[in-house]
Structures are given as C-alpha cells and as structure tokens.
Amino acid sequence: MNRYNNQFKITFPAKSANEAFSRSLISAFSTQLDPTIEELCDIKTAVSEAVTNCIVHAYAKETDERKKTVSITAYIEYDNLLTVKISDRGCGIDDIEKALQPMYSGSGSDERSGMGFSIMGCFTDKLSVKSKPGKGTTVTLKKYIGKQHAAKK
C-alpha cells in the first residue's frame, strides 16, 4: 500500500474572505475519504479556526500586503488519515502553552472568544503547534476519516 495517497498545497492571501474558501477546499479534498457529515463538519471547523488565527493574529503588525499569506498543505496517508498543515510567516506565538489554553485570546479587542485551539483539538485526533517568534506558525491537524476507520472501532 502506498503510504501517501494524495496531497495538495495552496498559498493564498491572508484575507478573511478566504476563510470560507479554505473550508470549501478541505471539504472537497476530504470527500475522497468518504467521510461522515460529522467528520466533514469537524475538519471544516478545525481548518476554519486555524486559518482565522493566521488572518487575525499573524500579520497584525505587517505592513507589506504581499507578505501576508497563508499556506495549506494536506495529505492522505494509509487510506484514512488526513493531515492538514496550516502555516503563516507572521509574528509567531511567544507562549504556545498559554495560547492553547481555553478562553485565552491574544487579541484583546474584536470579541475573540479564545476557543480556537480548543475547538481544533476537540474536532481532530491530534493537534500540534510549531512557532518561532518573528518567523511564523504552523498548525498541524490530524484526523482519521471515513468508513474504514469507523469499521475498525
């Protein structure tokens, strides 16, 4: 069996209109795994949170519009494991542990609930965050999807 079945990579401007676009994209890519509606909603919501973080936080101080980009790499392994990496080249996270706490928001204004990472963690099987201040952040989401996984349970 081929370990890597399929993958895609895309880079787009960190504009809020692309939040819905990224959800549609991951939804369309995941369809080949024959996901349940619940699984599809989970992965869409988790990706939406990660992309929103890039748009809201990563480039708050960046003035060069061309540098404000978000990249998504997604791949399927072992027929049922979906991995999605969402990365930016923004300000990075100083204290990842603090950022991962429920109800913590790095943005004091604009009514952010601080639940983004909690939702990502809850709706996927594995969440990991790598970040370097000034260099950017990569969030990796892993989720088992589809009937084969459901049958094994």
Binding site: R23, C41, S48, T52, E111, R112, S113, M115, G116, I119
Partner: peptide, 11 residues
C-alpha cells in the same frame, strides 16, 4: 456553519 467567531458574537 459556526466557529469560535460565532461564540464571540453570541457572548
């Protein structure tokens, strides 16, 4: 569809 931004909106 609703994500954590919706939570912020409701609260």
């Amino acid at each position: 569809f609703m994500d954590s931004s919706g939570l912020g909106l409701v609260l």
